[in-house]
């Protein structure tokens, strides 16, 4: 169990990652984002960088939400681009090719991002 309290990043009903939602929609759904194309990535990575390293993966799990609870997700179901497709991109946001941010695992990726793996590391309540 990490010492960092990640509650602030996994408790609010509204996602703290609005630019990441734009970036995900741009990359997964071909939806144009405000400003030049690189801006969404830049701002999204900034949002993720502001989250403590220990909490980034948890925040991303919370951002995706459970498949059965679209009402609790930061992602929107879109015509031709379902939430599940967008979730694939959320899972790799911290990797070297995108935001390149270290996580609780001291590497730039998140483990256990499948929903069935969440219970150990993520409290849904």
């Amino acid at each position: 169990v990490g010492s960092e309290d990640c509650t602030p990043w996994t408790a609010t009903p509204i996602t703290p990652l609005p630019s990441c939602r734009d970036y995900v929609e741009q990359q997964a759904c071909r939806i144009e984002t405000p400003g030049p194309p690189y801006l969404a990535k830049q701002q999204c990575c900034g949002e993720l960088a502001n989250i403590p390293q220990q909490c980034r993966c948890q925040a991303l799990r919370f951002f995706m939400g459970r498949k059965s609870r679209p009402d609790q997700s930061g992602l929107m179901e879109l015509p031709g681009c379902p939430r599940e497709v967008q979730m694939d991109f959320v899972r790799i946001l911290v990797t070297p090719g995108f935001c390149n941010l270290t996580t609780v695992h001291n590497t730039p990726y998140c483990l256990a991002m499948d929903e069935w793996q969440w219970n150990r590391q993520f409290c849904s309540s």
Binding site: E25, C29, G80, C81, V85, D88, I92, M113
Partner: peptide
């Protein structure tokens, strides 16, 4: 995770 996205609109 990215391979799954290759055919996606974006």
């Amino acid at each position: 995770d990215f391979v799954r996205l290759l055919v996606a609109p974006g």
